[in-house]
């Protein structure tokens, strides 16, 4: 029972990340009709927003130590953060400790702008081109973005810490009457709650605001909305920026779970596309449902008891389920008729 409960938690945590990325992907596809293979790179860039903010807080000046020497035996050049010099060690340490949560704000701004520039500068020229062209150009863009990040940050993962208050593991078992072995990292629990809030926020935005209503109308019938005198293209551009910002905050918050490196977007991209296809192309709720479903299935397939019966099942389960679902439900779990069927 403990093991099953832990794997459900794993699945929800993993599914949260899949769902957040898939949500942005399907949002872009549903509005602009673009298959965006650079979406994983946006998740990666979001994680590097956290790294960047940490480095900004760590901008230092050098002071030659009178007592210590460096690895060559020369006097050590100590790095003193300007924040520490100006505001004292307490403030400096607090900002560094909380840099990951604070980086959400940076990620929203930076990734929103990156998304709008991407859409206006590149993607809009491919609206009327075949999906294959869109895939090629966005995949090329993803490679350019990740190589730029590698150039400036290197290839090695860069660890980012959660605030000390959330660094350990929570005794979840004690909360629900299970054993002491049911412990789970605080930050992963927070990430799950965070992803649920973001998903809820995006849905609420689309469901309960006038802007969202117009966007939904545009997703259904772009031409009619245009005939009503609404500049639907401008709204879709903003939606692209929103999708990029969602990917960005998902990446920034994920950094204490997975030390970011330039390739992490590609690692998530393929899985996220499977999630979108299984959920149904263009279906926001389908993407979220499929994200959590596949996350949980992947976790259960990794259990030793399952692997002892079906060796290697953990590595193919997602694709196996995708094949079965697409054979029985060709439009995915919640796909709409007519999407990508021309």
């Amino acid at each position: 029972m403990d093991a099953i409960f832990l794997q459900i938690l794993n699945g929800l945590d993993k599914g949260g990340a899949y769902a957040l990325i898939a949500l942005g992907l399907t949002l872009v596809f549903g509005t602009l009709g673009v298959v965006n293979f650079a979406h994983g790179a946006l998740f990666m860039m979001g994680s590097f927003c956290a790294v960047t903010l940490n480095r900004i807080f760590n901008i230092s000046f050098e002071r030659v130590s009178e007592t210590e020497v460096d690895f060559l035996g020369n006097p050590l050049k100590e790095k003193i953060p300007y924040l520490q010099q100006w505001f004292g060690a307490d403030v400096s340490n607090f900002l560094l400790e909380w840099s990951v949560p604070m980086s959400i704000l940076l990620a929203i701004v930076v990734m929103g702008i990156v998304g709008v520039i991407m859409e206006r500068g590149l993607i809009k020229h491919f609206y009327k081109r075949p999906h294959a062209d869109q895939i090629l150009v966005t995949f090329g863009l993803a490679i350019i973005l990740q190589e730029l990040v590698r150039h400036y940050f290197g290839a090695n993962p860069i660890p980012q810490s959660a605030p000390d208050a959330f660094a350990g593991a929570a005794n979840v078992g004690a909360w629900i009457g299970l054993g002491d072995n049911v412990i789970y990292p605080w930050w992963r629990l927070i990430y799950f709650v965070f992803s649920a809030l973001v998903i809820f926020g995006v849905f609420a935005f689309l469901q309960f605001t006038t802007f969202g209503m117009v966007v939904r109308a545009g997703m259904q019938d772009r031409e009619t909305v245009g005939l009503l005198g609404i500049n639907i293209q401008r709204r879709f551009t903003i939606v692209f920026g929103l999708a990029a910002a969602v990917a960005g905050v998902a990446g920034a918050m994920y950094t204490p779970v997975l030390p970011p490196d330039y390739h992490m977007g590609m690692d998530f991209l393929v899985l996220s596309f499977v999630v979108v296809v299984v959920g149904g192309m263009g279906s926001l709720s389908g993407a979220v449902l499929a994200g959590f479903l596949l996350g949980i299935l992947q976790s259960f397939a990794s259990m030793n008891e399952v692997k002892s019966i079906l060796p290697g099942i953990d590595q193919i389960i997602i694709y196996l389920v995708a094949v079965i679902i697409l054979l029985t439900l060709p439009r995915g779990l919640m796909g709409r008729k007519g999407v990508m069927e021309d």
């Binding site: 093991a3 832990l6 794993n10 072995n181 412990i183 992963r188 992947q298 976790s299 990794s302 953990d314």
Partner: peptide, 9 residues
């Protein structure tokens, strides 16, 4: 995570 949680039990 899915490989680490079974260690707990």
């Amino acid at each position: 995570s899915q490989y680490i949680t079974p260690i707990l039990n």
